[in-house]
Design a protein around this nucleic acid. Structure first.
Lengths: 305, 305
DNA sequence: GATTTTATATAATATTATGTTATGGTCTCC
DNA sequence: GGAGACCATAACATAATATTATATAAAATC
């Protein structure tokens, strides 16, 4: 067999099998009858055995053809499927996005955003990997993931980042004296033990400065990495915390009250992605959707970070 | 997407993915580099998204392509497989043969012939369906089977048949007085009860004539359809039978002795196939192989049937 | 059984896909 | 900054696939 099998020949073959007629097959394929005749002739030549028997006006496939029929059909179906999928890809309805995020986001805000995003995109799948910021950074650098949600990001030449400052609020258990205030200052917290983020974090430094400026001593109760942990502790009646409004919202009506904190502090999130790897269109679309989802929580431009 | 996906484009895509280079891919495909460049350009155009990112001299597939890669590979593999199989078909190494045969052949002679036939034809598969001659005939007429082995066949306009007359022998249990003879005549059987085929069978008529001609009475012990059953009975020490040498051979050394019977009677087998359905080459090859396998048992041309 | 109808094959030819060579731009590597 | 590798593009040749026109053979009709 010197000639290669051509896809068009197989299409013609299947169409003729289906209709038992070259003419009808040609009609289905939308081409002239002689075109199909030749495709079949060439295919028969290539394969080395005859494809059809004439039987009272109809064409019936030979047993040899019958033997190949299933495989041929599978090829044609697969080609159709590839076309469909790539169609979906261009319409941003298919693809895969690998997301690395802070543990809090994996359970808190992100799932809702993903659910909404996938609603109109049935072919899209997503991987979520929660971990510490250091690890997220590594993953961006060696391009293991398409998109990262992190904080405390200081910039890196291999990582493209969009920073978003979200508002923070003061939270405390139901029944706490602060309940009576409509907003809370450092001064109001003089007698409270505070649950806050790690001392080396940017956010803690801002918080400490606020206390110093208010001539108030900051008394530590618990030092934690995650806002969610702080919220959890407060909801169990323990102490007071300053956390991102994003996290706090999930805990109101769960034994926690929230009030704006003054001076307004913001918490800087970084939406990151590998800089040299061209992101897929669907990834960019998701990052944009995620950024939008944070807008309601975004701090004013001029707020200190 | 107005343009259709072409197989050649997918081949080019996979080759470039594999080698991370258009030039090397072109070398593998055995064409010039610009040819591959264009195939990729056209494919990218058709699909609607870019296929590769440049990354320090190498080409890495975009995530979109990665998403399709498995399916594309499957299509190419399937095409290769189809080529291989059809190659096997033309070399008569693949295909399927449906055989309808007398019950005796299903267990007796046929298996050995099939085993030999399949030895050099790994892709060939065979269906064996044992049944009565009437049913075999029906199956030929409506083309449910490719090949039939039957007897008592009277001809039919929808069935093509090749008749083969096989020798018959007289068989009897070890220790029987006939043991002393080197050949047996009807006269020698005057005092024996005979196991023979059905009275309406052609072969019985010939046998009866031989007895009449020898002025001997034929005493029936058992009337059976199959030679194998007759052999089985004889091997249990019961009576005497005239059966085809083909069947008899399987029972010598199992308590049965065989001697030529005079006058020489033959048993007519018919190798049949549907007349209007063009048989596959592999079927014809098998029929021919089967006919050859009967040669050692074939009666002389001029023997009465 | 002659004739019309229908289905398919073949021939001549246009169009599209796929190949070639020639060439210029861009990137990497030194 | 220059050499070499790599790729894209242009101009053109060839092969695959389409077209229309027509011949041929089988099926259907009278």
């Amino acid at each position: 067999m010197k000639q290669k099998l051509r896809l068009r020949q197989l299409e013609a073959l299947m169409a003729v099998i289906q209709h038992s007629s070259v003419t009808r097959a040609a009609k289905e394929l939308g081409v002239s009858q002689p075109a199909v005749s030749r495709l079949l002739a060439d295919l028969g030549q290539t394969l080395g055995f005859s494809l059809f028997d004439r039987r009272g006006g109809r064409l019936v496939p030979t047993q040899e053809v019958h033997f190949l029929q299933a495989d041929i059909q599978r090829v044609l179906d697969l080609m159709d499927q590839i076309e469909e999928v790539s169609q979906s890809i261009t319409e941003r309805k298919a693809g895969h996005i690998r997301i690395a995020c802070l543990p809090g986001f994996a359970t808190n805000h992100l799932p809702a955003v993903i659910a909404q995003f996938l609603k109109d995109r049935p072919g899209v799948s997503i991987t979520i990997e929660p971990d510490r910021p250091e690890r997220i950074l590594e993953w961006m650098i060696d391009e293991q993931f398409d998109f990262g949600i992190t904080d405390g990001f200081r910039g890196h030449s291999a990582v493209f980042s969009t920073d978003i400052d979200v508002r923070t609020v003061c939270i405390f258990p139901d029944g706490h004296p602060l309940e009576k205030l409509s907003e809370v200052t450092a001064h109001d917290l003089a007698n409270d033990k505070i649950i806050h983020t790690r001392r080396d974090s940017e956010f803690f430094k801002n918080l400490a400065t606020a206390f110093v400026d208010a001539d108030t001593v900051l008394t530590t109760l618990v030092e934690t990495r995650q806002f969610t942990a702080a919220c959890e502790l407060v909801s169990h009646g323990l102490g007071v915390a300053i956390v991102s409004e994003l996290d706090a919202l999930k805990f109101v009506d769960r034994g926690v009250q929230a009030r704006p904190f003054l001076p307004a502090l913001s918490h800087r999130l970084s939406l990151v992605r590998p800089i040299s790897k061209q992101p897929s269109a669907i990834t960019l679309e998701f990052i944009s959707a995620f950024a939008s989802s944070l807008e309601p929580f975004q701090a004013l431009e001029n707020a200190p970070t």
